[in-house]
Design a protein around this nucleic acid. Structure first.
Length: 816
DNA sequence: GAGTTTGAAACT
DNA sequence: CAGTTTCAAACTC
């Protein structure tokens, strides 16, 4: 009975959650997952297109042309090119060219975004909740991406456009392939279409992108394309008009957030661009504005107005103008004015601006709409940590959260199953990089990866893949290397996507299959049936990552789609046990050799944070967390009959696995242990390096590719940290408390988590113990972890691992 | 592949 | 805080 009761309870909860999620998803109405079809985006492209041409013919247009020093070229718009290209390659599914007309897209977008569902998409990249239609979704996603990518949709339109040509290919590729994002090159390269895509994708997921994009453009992305200066001008005006209209919208909507969001993100990037386009904004005068306004009525802009629901008041024009101006003024600060990047590269720059603007706005709207949820997320997630100063960042963080590890349903996001992780990781990195690194980390230091990490990645790739574990985000960042693999994965991924959905249907089989196949690489995933993957029972959840395709879980809520739920649950759990998501295995500094010494790094140096409680397994089976983690038992353990090969509680074996080997129980397991040990050694070597290179950043620890000895089955997961935002970098760097990508049970911890890494709190100062206490729920002794392990105080200082789980510790902020 | 064992997590 | 239940992984057959 009790069970039933409980189940019922859970069910209720689940339902509740579901409802919530659904509401979120559908929020707007339409979009929703299954439901909505192409929700928002499919506007009439034709319709959109038309206006432009008309526009050209219009007197206003002529007027503008006259004004502009440039020759007007007929706007044969890139869009066409772009469209043509895209479409050509696009699968039939995409019949509706989202991309086609930027403006059109804008149009739609607005509506779309207004739709609450949007957020979800953004987060997931279109992954819809639970829907199985991988294909469709994907398409959808891709569309979305496109949209986001699409200048119109994309905030960073300007830049994006500039990248256009490059991006074109990328887009196409992306669509067809679905996920090329992974291409490492992107990061490094300034303009690569891929980047754009990637960015766009990211953007889609989050508003963050903007900066990034901008950056790209700035970087010099030289627009390959032909520049239609004249067009540009025109566009510029047009953009202005659009902007104005947007401004109106803003006023109307009055969403402060928007404005803010706007400013933040754009500003920076724009600033840089400013030099290029600086003057454009200023150029506009009232008259021009008015003209524009008129134009709006006539031209394409008019369309927009329609959209905006603010019918161009012919009568109250003045007022309208005033409004506009006011808006404009307000926006000035924002950079909109600055805006339009004049880079030659920008083919479509004009639109970009407007688009940019739009994008911003749109995002803002989205936020607003989705708002509540996002906000709360932000708050929660970021609350502890210092958020990035810029709004974007916040957004990013949120978005990140969204990033799905498991595409589960959203193929798109993940897209790459294989890459999925990779992507995710990359995405984050990229985002962060773009944003963070640029801004904050100008130093870029970290970007450099660890070789080791890279190596690990490679190895992973070979395997299954799908989840590349990017050992370190940073490594990823390095992208260059890591990215490459990702690419491969991506290609592979496409294939996987479809299958992903299927997987869930037959979890067990799948799982087994994965285990067998993937074990090597370690792609193991969870197989939760009742926990909805929202409890620590779930390995994925416990690891702070979203469930991924390979997971065989049922009723999984550990997906980006259910971000809110996941976060909430996480919070809950953390409230109970702050260290719940912290790495379970802590490497003791003592033994911890320096980074370089891998050989010396043995599991022995590490210990399980809480210790095990084994009664029957003798700590010789994976039931034992210590053993599983490849570490010896410690005084923290309450195990009985400890025979842990890596070190006994009594200390006999403690020294190290090696010692253990000798001591190994004669039991048949000996061989097993041996294997495990060997693996460990190997892994350790690889891992350790990473550590060294990897700063304490959780990320590293995170899923470093390194697998613990036992992790064989469990490969490093993708990194998407649920929490997201903090993302690997984010968290630490920004000190966001959000979930860190936890390190997989042991895998990560071992490698990365060194005592050094341990949160300062935990470390040296046992003072934090209080926290720890809480951490140790069961009274299992939570020995002050550090103390025990942290026998070597000296080392600790160097790294600052932040326990993600720990909410806010300013001190934790990344040294970086 | 099904069933059992195990111990962590969750609950009371 | 301790005891019990639940859960999913690990393991066995």
């Amino acid at each position: 009975m009790g069970e039933e009761g409980e189940e019922g309870k859970e069910e209720k909860e689940g339902e509740k959650l579901e409802r919530e999620s659904e509401s979120e998803e559908c929020g707007g109405g339409g979009g929703g997952g299954g439901g909505g079809g192409p929700p928002m985006d499919t506007p009439d492209r034709s319709r959109i297109a038309t206006p432009l041409y008309k526009f050209e013919d219009s007197p206003v247009f002529n007027y503008i042309n006259n004004l502009s020093p440039f020759e007007t070229v007929k706007p044969i718009r890139i869009s066409q090119t772009f469209n043509s290209v895209n479409f050509a390659s696009l699968p039939s599914i995409f019949t509706s060219p989202h991309v086609s007309s930027l403006k059109g897209s804008r149009f739609l977008r607005r509506h779309q975004f207004s739709d609450p569902s949007k957020p979800e998409f953004s987060s997931d990249n279109g992954n819809k909740v639970g829907s199985n239609d991988g294909v469709i979704d994907e398409a959808h996603n891709s569309d979305e991406l496109q949209e986001s990518f699409d200048p119109g949709s994309f905030i960073g339109e300007g830049p994006v456009e500039s990248t256009y040509e490059c991006s074109k290919l990328a887009n196409v590729a992306s669509r067809t392939l679905n996920y090329d994002y992974g291409s490492p090159d992107c990061r490094t390269m300034p303009c690569h279409g891929i980047d754009t895509n990637y960015v766009s994708k990211l953007a889609g997921t989050s508003g963050l992108v903007v900066p990034f994009v901008q950056e790209v453009s700035q970087t010099g992305f030289v627009g390959s394309g032909v520049h239609l200066d004249g067009i540009r001008n025109i566009d510029h005006y047009k953009d202005w008009a659009t902007m104005i209209s947007d401004a109106n919208d803003l006023l109307i909507f009055d969403s402060p957030d928007d404005a803010e969001a706007f400013k933040g993100p754009l500003q920076k990037p724009l600033d840089s661009e400013t030099r290029l386009c600086a003057s454009l904004g200023s150029e506009f005068t009232h008259d021009e504005v008015s003209d524009l306004q008129k134009t709006q009525a006539v031209g394409p802009v008019g369309v927009e107005q329609h959209e905006s629901e603010n019918p161009p008041p012919q009568v109250g024009e003045e007022d309208h103008l005033k409004e506009i101006e006011a808006t404009r003024d307000a926006l000035d600060g924002t950079s909109l004015n600055k805006c339009v990047p004049v880079e030659p590269g920008e083919q479509l720059d004009n639109e970009p601006i407007s688009n940019l603007h739009r994008g911003m706005r749109r995002r803002c709207l989205v936020f607003d709409m989705a708002g509540a949820r996002r906000k709360h997320l932000d708050d929660s997630s970021s609350s502890g940590s210092s958020m990035l100063p810029q709004p974007d960042v916040n957004i990013e963080s949120n978005d990140k959260q969204l990033v799905p590890m498991k595409p589960g349903n959203d193929s798109s996001n993940c897209i790459l199953p294989g890459i999925g992780l990779h992507l995710n990781a990359l995405a984050r990195t990229s985002k962060e990089y773009s944003v963070v690194s640029h801004e904050t980390l100008s130093s870029g230091r970290q970007l450099i990866n660890d070789p080791s990490s890279t190596a690990s990645i490679h190895s992973l790739n070979t395997g299954q893949d799908q989840y590349l574990a990017v050992t370190s985000m940073e490594g990823n960042m390095g992208l260059t290397e890591s990215g490459v693999p990702g690419m491969e994965d991506a290609s592979l991924a496409s294939g996987y996507i479809a299958s992903e959905e299927l997987n869930q249907s037959s979890p067990k089989k799948k799982r087994r299959r994965l285990e067998n196949a993937g074990e090597t690489e370690g792609c193991k995933r969870c197989n939760c049936k009742k926990s909805k993957c929202l409890k620590l029972y779930c390995e994925c959840f416990a690891a702070g990552v979203y469930c991924v395709e390979p997971c065989s879980c049922q009723d999984c809520y550990n997906k980006p789609i259910h971000e809110d739920t996941v976060l909430a649950t996480r919070k809950q759990i953390e409230s109970r046990n702050p260290l719940a998501f912290a790495p379970k295995v802590i490497r003791s500094s003592d033994s911890v050799p320096e980074i370089g010494d891998e050989s010396s790094k043995t599991p022995a140096s590490a210990r399980h944070k809480r210790g095990c409680n084994c009664k029957k397994s003798g700590c010789l089976k994976k039931y034992c967390e210590c053993y599983q983690g490849g570490v010896g038992c410690s005084i923290n353990c309450r195990c009985e009959g400890c025979k842990n090969a890596f070190g006994r509680k009594d200390g006999s074996g403690a020294i190290g696995a090696e010692a253990e080997l000798e001591e190994e129980p004669e039991v048949s397991e000996k061989s097993v242990i041996h294997k495990s040990l060997q693996k460990n050694l190997i892994q350790n070597s690889s891992e350790q390096n990473p550590d060294s290179t990897l700063p304490a950043t959780p990320v590293h620890s995170g899923r470093a590719s390194v697998q613990l000895p036992f992790s064989k089955n469990k490969p490093p997961r993708s990194f998407l940290s649920i929490g997201s935002s903090s993302g690997f970098f984010g968290n630490q760097r920004f000190g966001k408390p959000i979930f860190l990508p936890p390190q997989p049970k042991f895998e990560k911890p071992i490698q990365t988590v060194q005592e050094d890494e341990m949160p300062e709190i935990l470390q040296g100062n046992c003072s934090p113990i209080g926290a720890i206490k809480s951490a140790s729920p069961n009274s299992k002794r939570v020995s002050p972890p550090h103390c025990d392990f942290g026998s070597s105080p000296g080392r600790r200082s160097s790294r600052k691992l932040i326990l993600q789980s720990i909410p806010s510790f300013p001190s934790l902020n990344p040294k970086d």
